[in-house]
Design a protein around this nucleic acid. Structure first.
Length: 886
RNA sequence: GGGCGGAUAGCUCAGUUGGGAGAGCAUCGGCCUUACAAGCCGAGGGUCACAGGUUCAAGCCCUGUUCCGCCUACCA
């Protein structure tokens, strides 16, 4: 294989090639059983109807980083992929398809319709899986699951039956959230509330004799057609001695009772409340307390029922207008006020929700929630960042029963049958043939299906083969981590906790890492209607997957939203390219050999190995704690500013053989080592480019995914942080920077070689600079460098100060005295500010007495250092000013 | 109504034990220096939202205020 690299990195064919390679080599595969440490993550299953958006991109990048990192560390990693059947959403998609063909599901029939959905799924469902692959996701694809698969359906059924037998599932008539468009009940969570400008209408319900009556206030006048009472607070003095105990319901001219209930807020409106038990949860409760009949005036299709009299068949919003118009004409509309109130919408189709009385199935949530609550409180499951714990507690502590039945066709049909003869309810694992009570064979299966979230609540164990006792479960349950957005903390995470604890007797995951939302660059939520959506696939096309992934990781700080803009991705593409070119340069010097580090190392060699050891340690620490951004930016800093900017430049003479063969050998060895380790460290973040370079790097075999993860602890790795080399290198870099600074400020072209003199009272420093003379001269572009004890300042020279040393650059004929004076003055001002701050501390007796000794010593040292520096600069400035006037 | 988060350089944000205010981008100046102009070298830029408090010491801890964002709620 050629070791030549192209001048710029071209991601597209590289990505495709390596992804296929990884799959072919089975590098994503988990072992059912292994000596290795187990690490597992189940993917938050995207909707089978879904297309990849920024949220998925972030979510899966983070999971992939964790999984690739753990694999490199030698763990047996299972990343379980799959999709969710998304009952309502999928049914909607196929129904739209039918509509375009001029038919609908009722014409087709249930069985045929389900077939159609499966067909749709085969053809176009699961598109998102391919898109995840283009993100580089290293899921164990051979294990891909779907919530409607046979195995998972069995798990669903088992759970339903057992919960029913445990008394945790019941059926009953309650007010639920009804979506008239999707034609199904929804859980409370599935209703999205939005503040809307609306009105509060005051309507007079006259007494039977037509006299004054009671005026009520309502935001939904159409529901009055289902009113069965008017309520007032028993304490309300305005309604103490009424001439009648009934009023006439306008428009329908029906007598309804006046009831007294303390629920009524006397301060709201007129203190009169219309009661519609069939269309309002509160009214339903009041109705129960007072034995009121429930009248359903709005049907399941959102149109008025026969109970609505002449309004029958009218759409509910049309009816509102008609009712208001009629009331107005009859003089019963007393007044209209503006009112902001929140209106519930269907989270799937955004239709206004209708609270509706209906026979549904519910999960009794409290007993399950208590366990889920305890597991986080006692730390069996950790939520990261911690602030989400409160949100989790808050919800579980106030949980209400969960409506799980949906009046759609696509989903797990509820395994319940009613005997037509004796009305016995049968809930069973196997379809019953006859009624166990009366023996009748006339059994009718419940037509409702279960909420999709019911099946996804089982995901961590149903995907691993439960209810069978599989080896997979034994190896990987509880999973190590769950990575998810906070928007499904309740929908999914809390419910998985409840189900996992109930059925597996253990939490479903050790850690829950909750990441933020991806927003646009102005912090707005991305949405199609706003037109600010950035398509991840387009980003990948334009910048490459690695650049995109690195951007996501670098911005994924805990507890803060990720603001995404293409410009940022572009910035990180530059980083990928930088790495690419560093590799290109390195490979020119590495040729075929895979050298071993031996012999005496140069200072830059020692330094870069120490820095490598540090970044290795810190990346490990950061990833273990889910500080993705810190890990990413630490690597960025190391690769670009330490490896490329300093090490490669410093190592050039040695690499080009200008310092002898031995130096060339050892610098090659160090270069190889640093590049190799960097590739491994970077691989979880940017898998493609690292794999590509890995294969060009001599001395590597197979995939970088099979590499041994480096460690920076010296013991096992041979490299360790080395504070002394770092300090020495810092001094050297300080001298170089000092000269460069003078160059920059004096506008001296880089092509001009300079002389420099360093004066230092410190013998060790003089020796160091003397020893590294060549390196310094090279990087600072000096033609001579003299090292001496402090003495006379060379005439017409610019000065830089490094600790106790002075760096002079003689600029005979070049120096601009004005400029140099200004430069020094600026430096003085800066120093004075710092010194005065430190003096203030040192003059404070309390500080000296109470602060820890090491802090005091540090401040003292700093103060004296800066004071000395100040003195030197001032004397130089004086000389410059003399020279200026001379 | 309840709760949570945020306010730090022009922009986007780090700042995980209270002791140095930092990065990237943008800006300005200089460079085609044999990996990279998608680059290199250098520079400027801050009342850490506001007001108090604790402390020898506060971006960080406490109290209050303002403004943004989000979640939650049976507000007719």
């Amino acid at each position: 294989m050629s070791t030549e690299l192209d001048k710029g990195y071209e991601p597209h064919d590289v990505e495709k090639r390596w992804y296929e390679f990884w799959q072919k080599e089975g590098l994503f595969a988990a072992k059912d059983q292994s000596e290795q440490k187990a690490y597992s993550i189940v993917i938050p299953p995207p909707n089978v109807t879904g297309v990849l958006h920024m949220g998925h991109a972030l979510n899966n990048t983070l999971q992939d980083i964790l999984c690739r990192y753990r694999r490199l560390k030698g763990d047996n990693v299972l990343w379980m992929p799959g999709t969710d059947h998304a009952g309502i959403a999928t049914q909607n998609v196929v129904e739209r398809q039918l509509a375009s063909e001029g038919t609908d599901r009722h014409q087709l029939g249930r069985e045929k319709f389900i077939e159609r959905v499966w067909e749709w799924r085969k053809d176009s469902g699961g598109k998102i899986i391919h898109q995840l692959k283009s993100m580089g996701a290293s899921c164990d694809w051979d294990r891909e699951r779907f919530t409607m698969d046979e195995g998972l359906s069995k798990a669903v059924r088992k759970v339903f039956v057992q919960l029913y037998e445990d008394g945790l599932i019941y059926r009953g008539n309650y007010i639920i959230n009804w979506c008239p468009r999707c034609h199904t009940a929804l859980a409370d969570l599935e209703v999205e509330h939005e503040e809307k400008d609306s009105h509060l209408w005051y309507v007079r319900y006259p007494f039977p004799d037509g006299s004054s009556g009671i005026t009520i206030a309502t935001t939904r006048p159409e529901t009055m057609l289902g009113d069965t009472a008017v309520a007032v607070n028993p304490e309300d003095e305005r309604y103490q001695n009424l001439p009648a105990e009934e009023v006439l319901l306008p428009l329908l001219n029906k007598r309804i009772p006046i009831i007294r209930d303390s629920y009524v807020d006397m301060s709201f409106g007129t203190g009169g409340l219309k009661v519609t038990p069939a269309h309002d949860p509160n009214d339903f409760e009041i109705g129960k307390r007072h034995n009121l009949p429930s009248v359903k005036a709005i049907g399941d299709d959102g149109k008025m029922t026969a109970e609505a009299g002449k309004y029958e068949g009218m759409d509910r919003f049309e009816c509102r207008k008609a009712v208001l118009k009629d009331l107005e004409e009859q003089g019963l509309l007393v007044k209209t006020e503006d009112l902001k109130h929140s209106v519930g919408h269907c989270y799937r189709c955004h239709t206004v929700i209708e609270p509706n009385l209906s026979l549904q199935w519910f999960v009794k949530a409290k007993p399950l929630a208590d366990k889920a609550l305890a597991a986080v409180k006692d730390g069996r499951t950790k939520i990261i960042p911690e602030m989400w714990k409160n949100t989790y507690y808050e919800w579980l502590e106030n949980i209400r029963d969960w409506c799980i039945s949906r009046q759609i066709w696509w989903g797990h049909q509820i395994p319940a049958w009613t005997c037509e003869d004796c009305r016995e309810m049968i809930v069973a694992m196997d379809d019953p043939v006859s009624c166990p009570k009366c023996g009748s064979t006339k059994l009718l299966q419940e037509t409702d299906v279960l909420d999709t979230w019911f099946s996804s609540a089982l995901w961590p164990f149903s995907t691993m083969g439960w209810p069978e006792e599989t080896r997979l479960l034994k190896t990987f349950y509880p999973t190590s981590a769950l990575v998810t957005g906070f928007d499904i903390l309740f929908f999914w995470v809390a419910r998985m906790m409840m189900m996992g604890l109930h059925f597996m007797k253990d939490v479903p995951f050790r850690d829950v890492y909750v990441h933020a939302l991806v927003r646009d660059e102005d912090g707005q939520k991305m949405s199609k209607s706003k037109g600010n959506v950035i398509d991840p696939l387009l980003v990948i096309d334009n910048y490459g997957t690695d650049a995109f992934r690195f951007t996501l990781a670098a911005f994924a700080a805990q507890g803060r939203d990720v603001k995404m803009s293409e410009k940022r991705v572009e910035g990180y593409r530059h980083f990928i390219n930088k790495l690419w070119n560093a590799a290109r340069f390195s490979l020119m010097h590495l040729e075929q050999s895979c050298p071993e580090i031996k012999g005496e190392l140069s200072l830059p060699d020692q330094w870069i190995l120490s820095r490598l050891a540090r970044v290795t340690q810190s990346v490990e620490k950061q990833l273990d704690a889910y500080y993705f951004n810190d890990a990413a930016s630490g690597l960025y800093q190391f690769v670009w500013h330490e490896f490329c900017d300093w090490y490669l430049e410093a190592a050039k003479p040695a690499l080009y053989g200008q310092s002898g063969e031995e130096a060339q050998e050892s610098s090659r060895a160090v270069l190889w080592r640093v590049l190799r380790d960097s590739l491994i460290l970077l691989h979880p973040f940017i898998p493609f480019v690292t794999e590509e370079i890995w294969h060009k790097l001599p001395g590597t075999r197979g995939s970088v995914m099979r590499a041994v993860y480096p460690s920076g602890d010296g013991e096992t790795a041979g490299i360790a942080p080395d504070a002394e080399s770092e300090a020495r290198m810092e001094t050297v870099m300080g001298v170089i920077t000092g000269v460069r600074n003078i160059r920059g400020e004096m506008n001296i072209r880089p092509s001009m070689s300079l002389d420099a003199r360093v004066q230092s009272p410190d013998e060790a420093v003089r020796a160091l600079i003397e020893k590294e003379k060549e390196l310094i001269s090279d990087l600072a572009r000096l033609k001579s460098l003299t090292v001496e004890t402090p003495g006379e300042k060379p005439p017409s020279s610019a000065t830089a100060i490094l600790d106790k040393s002075l760096i002079f650059v003689p600029l005979e004929g070049i120096i601009d005295f004005e400029k140099e004076a200004a430069r020094l003055e600026k430096e003085l001002v800066k120093l004075e500010k710092e010194i005065s701050g430190l003096s203030k501390k040192l003059n404070n007796e309390d500080f000296l007495a109470k602060a820890p000794d090491d802090v005091v010593a540090k401040v003292k040292e700093k103060h004296s250092g800066l004071s000395e520096k100040h003195l030197k600069i001032r004397s130089n400035l004086e000389k410059i000013q003399q020279a200026k006037t001379a």
